[in-house]
């Protein structure tokens, strides 16, 4: 058992080791920093594909635009929640923040499947094309998750698993938002299932690996 005297000597030792530290930036600012990488990817994709096909799809089928808005907001909310939860003393309730936009994302995507007509400039994805969507979402999620885990390790995530789940959701939602720029397929059950599978893979991979990477030392 450690003696109280030993508490005093530890405090003196820690005092002797003290150096000034740069305070962690507020969570919202760190979220903006992470979103800058998402924005950079978006600009590259827009430079390559242009925004016209995306805007035409949205004008023709507003449910696609709502789904895209839901995905973007889910990414922002999940990232903000992850950065906030990585600061000790912040309420666990932050983990619920991405729920409303995620419901919009899932709801609008699901409603799109009920449409009986095709959105302009789209077709129904074949199984092979759906697989490309999966690779796109998983592929973009890797650098986005890696950056967020790296940023979060500078904080102190006392709930590593919950934080890692939010990292996965933020990365997958951001990747699904980026996919919207070049996604020439209409909402359909197969496509929706592929997207759900991709998001599930990213969230599960983050929970499995990120939880360990974020665990307090």
């Amino acid at each position: 058992m450690a003696e109280p005297r030993s508490n005093d000597s530890l405090i003196a030792a820690l005092g002797a080791e003290l150096v000034p530290v740069r305070r962690l930036l507020p969570p919202w600012l760190r979220t903006v920093g992470w979103l800058a990488l998402v924005a950079a990817f978006a600009l590259l994709l827009l430079a390559h594909y242009g925004d016209a096909p995306m805007l035409r799809r949205w004008a023709g089928a507003p449910d696609l635009a709502w789904a895209a808005l839901g995905a973007v907001l889910t990414a922002v909310a999940a990232a903000w929640a992850a950065f906030t939860l990585a600061v000790p003393g912040r309420s666990r309730a932050w983990a619920w923040l991405p729920l409303p936009p995620a419901l919009l994302w899932i709801g609008a995507s699901g409603l799109g499947c009920l449409r009986t007509w095709l959105a302009p400039g789209t077709s129904i994805a074949t199984l092979h094309q759906s697989a490309d969507c999966l690779v796109f979402i998983v592929g973009f999620s890797i650098p986005l998750s890696a950056l967020m885990v790296w940023l979060l390790r500078r904080a102190c995530p006392l709930r590593p698993l919950l934080t890692a789940l939010l990292v996965g959701l933020a990365s997958a939602a951001a990747s699904a938002s980026l996919l919207e720029i070049c996604h020439a397929f209409d909402a359909a059950a197969t496509d929706l299932l592929t997207h759900a599978l991709a998001v599930g893979i990213v969230v599960a991979a983050n929970a499995a690996m990120g939880g360990r990477l974020l665990a307090p030392k």
Partner: peptide, 18 residues
Amino acid sequence: DDVVQETLLTVHRVRHTY
């Protein structure tokens, strides 16, 4: 006291997060 000391060490390591 073990918890006290572990907490103090963690506080020292993450004091920039306050």
